[in-house]
């Protein structure tokens, strides 16, 4: 079942300029592995060499940061929206 993955501008050149790609998978880990396998230019960008999420990247499933759900084991379902975003200062308030 495909989920939609939204990529930040900085990563789009690695996926042929697309803003969104459709990927099959039942967990975030599976989806990201497939994404990197299909677009090898992303290798090392989203997942670090030790297999964990790059610390400067936040992954959201329907607006929830997966670091505080089940990390790479976070389940995804058909129609879920996954966003990959660089970590930024949310605002100094």
């Amino acid at each position: 079942m495909p989920v939609s993955i939204r990529l930040p501008t900085v990563l789009r050149p690695q996926v042929g300029g697309q803003a969104t790609v459709q990927i099959e998978g039942s967990t975030i880990g599976e989806v990201l592995s497939t994404l990197v396998a299909e677009h090898p230019g992303l290798s090392g960008q989203v997942i670090a060499e030790d297999g964990a999420l790059n610390k400067f990247v936040n992954i959201y499933v329907n607006d929830d940061d997966v670091r505080y759900l089940q990390q790479l084991d976070t389940p995804v379902a058909d129609g879920d929206e996954v966003s990959i975003l660089p970590a930024v200062a949310g605002g100094a308030n």
């Binding site: 900085v10 960008q45 790059n54 610390k55 400067f56 990247v57 660089p86 970590a87 930024v88």
Partner: peptide
């Protein structure tokens, strides 16, 4: 952002 390392924690 020009690259992911421009990210900030």
């Amino acid at each position: 952002l020009r690259n992911l390392d421009d990210g900030y924690i």
